[in-house]
């Protein structure tokens, strides 16, 4: 398509698109069929209109809106911390052996926080306004810290599984045998 060159105007939409977009008229002209009992053509609009009239709500100010957004952002920021106990229990149950279940669990423990940290701007975009910008910075830092905490749980688990080179035996292969400067040999018959 791109090879056809620049196209200044899009082609007119096909008929079915137009049909779909235009809602049918409230009352077809040609129809002689009466409406079913209880149907009123303007019923829906009437109702909304009445509720609006019943409680006329004052629109929140931007400050209030910002406070609400920040509150909501805090909730999201502390989300990972709430996962920690659940994950801890899950890991305790899965044991320290190298099995598909525990390996997947550990994988998820690393994947989720890293993904979240990478996506920290996206996660708080909806709360981002002129007023909340400065306040959201702290929230983001807390969010990152919480994810790191979750990842720390993963590291603890990996260590418990014996996959971290933290002990002497892990470095044994790099340790050399002592070199004996003098050598003793059994003699042939002499």
């Amino acid at each position: 398509m791109a090879s056809q060159g620049p196209n200044p105007l899009p082609p007119p939409p096909p008929q079915w698109v137009l049909d779909m977009n235009s809602t049918p008229g409230s009352k077809p002209k040609t129809a002689n069929i009466p409406d079913p009992p209880g149907f009123s053509a303007s019923g829906g609009s009437k109702k909304t209109a009445s509720s609006k009239q019943a409680t006329p709500r004052k629109a929140p100010t931007t400050e209030e809106m910002d406070t609400l957004k920040v509150k909501k952002a805090w909730e999201i920021a502390l989300g990972p911390a709430k996962q920690i106990p659940m994950n801890a229990i899950g890991m305790y149950m899965s044991g320290n052996s190298l099995q598909i279940f525990s390996i997947m669990m550990v994988f998820m423990l690393f994947k989720t926080p890293i993904q979240s940290i990478m996506n920290v701007q996206g996660a708080f975009q909806r709360f981002e306004t002129e007023g909340t910008k400065s306040r959201l910075l702290l929230v983001k830092i807390v969010y990152v810290l919480m994810n790191i905490l979750l990842m720390g749980l993963g590291i603890y688990k990996v260590n418990a599984m014996g996959l971290l080179p933290t002990t002497r035996s892990d470095w044994l292969a790099w340790e050399a045998q002592r070199d004996y400067l003098e050598r003793a040999y059994p003699a042939l018959w002499r």
């Binding site: 002990t167 035996s169 340790e175 045998q177 002592r178 004996y180 003793a184 059994p186």
Partner: peptide
């Protein structure tokens, strides 16, 4: 191949590897 014996807690007991033993 291995100059030590790896224990159950992944610590190492180093072998006494003297080529001149009689």
């Amino acid at each position: 191949a291995s100059i030590g014996r790896v224990l159950g807690d992944r610590r190492v007991l180093y072998k006494y590897l003297n080529p001149n033993l009689v």
